[in-house]
Every structure is written in C-alpha cells, then in structure tokens.
Simulated scan of single mutants.
Amino acid sequence: MGKRIETRLIAAVLALFALTQVASAACQPGKIELAGERGVVSFDVSVADSFASRGRGLMFVKDMADSAGMLFIYGVTRPVSFWMKNTYIPLDMIFIDRRGVVKKVHANAVPHDTTSISSDVPIRSVLEINGGLAEKLGIGPGTLVRHADLPQTGVAWPC
C-alpha cells in the first residue's frame, strides 16, 4: 500500500473514531450541542422549564463562563419575549423552533434594559449565552440544536 493511501486510510479511521465519540457523547445531561457551518459547539446549561425558573432566568447573575448558558424550555411551541431587567451581563438569545433549528439570534441584549425582545415566530426553547459568542462561534438561523430535555420526535438532529 502506498504511503499516500495509508495516510488517507489512517485519517479516515481517526475521523470515524472522532465521529463515533461525538455520537456516543450526544445529549449528556446538562449539555446542549449546536451544529452549524463552523462545526459543533457545546455549552454546560442550566434548564429553566417551569414558570418560576423561566421568570428568574439569569437575573442577578454577575459572571458566567463562556462555556455556560441557560436553556429555557416551553411546553408548547409559541412566540415568546424576554427582557433584561435585573440581568447584569450582556446575553445572546438564541430562539429555537420545535424541530431544534435556530430561527433567530438576538445578539448582545443590553443589561437592565426593559425593552421586550421577541422571538417573532413560534419557538420551543431559547438558549442564553454570553453576549457576542453566537457570532464568534457561527451560531445563526439554520444552526441545529439538541439537548436531552428537548422533544426528540420530528426533530432535525435527535439525540
């Protein structure tokens, strides 16, 4: 076997191994994954899936790691809106539909601003991460999202 073919074969085996490792690590509790044009990124997330936890959100949080975020999950798909009252850090709000596809990103929401930030379309969940990260990581409309607590039937990228 030629050296060039052998190198390609080794690269293919390593790539397959890496893909199987990613697949087996899919949908770990407390992690959300996003797949877009620049590859796959993940965040450690707290889940807000009750009226009270969604109402509090990231209020009063003064510092958050770039690898962290909060996932707001709604029981039904509907338009939602947010504000930044009592929120100390700028946030990117990533609005996700029932199929796990990003529909809208509101970048760098201003701390303490009471202006309503709307999804504009029906969504099932919202991911909040540090302001500016969505653009830096290439997260935008069309990015695929998966998390163990999101619906798994009829989605674009299931667990």
Rank of each mutant, 00 (worst) to 15 (best):
F17T: 04
R124W: 03
S42C: 09
K103R: 15
G36N: 10
L16P: 00
G30K: 05
L14H: 07
A35H: 03
G36V: 02
K103T: 15
D92V: 05
S50P: 06
S24Q: 13
F82K: 09
G36D: 00
E6T: 02
D97G: 06
V102G: 01
L127R: 04
A109T: 10
A11I: 11
S81Q: 15
Q152N: 06
R99D: 05
G138F: 13
V110W: 02
A65Y: 05
P141G: 15
M84F: 06
Q21L: 15
F43R: 07
A48D: 01
A109E: 08
F60N: 11
V13G: 07
T143S: 08
A23P: 00
I129S: 08
G75N: 15
L14Q: 02
G2D: 03
N108Q: 07
F17E: 03
S81G: 11
P122N: 13
G2Q: 04
A65Q: 03
V121P: 13
L71F: 02
A148D: 12
V22H: 11
T7D: 15
L34G: 05
D63Y: 15
A26P: 01
G69P: 10
T143G: 03
K85E: 14
I73D: 13
V105C: 08
L127Q: 07
A107I: 11
G75A: 15
S119H: 00
G36R: 10
T153P: 05
S53K: 02
G138R: 13
G55K: 04
A25N: 14
I96R: 00
V13N: 06
L127K: 01
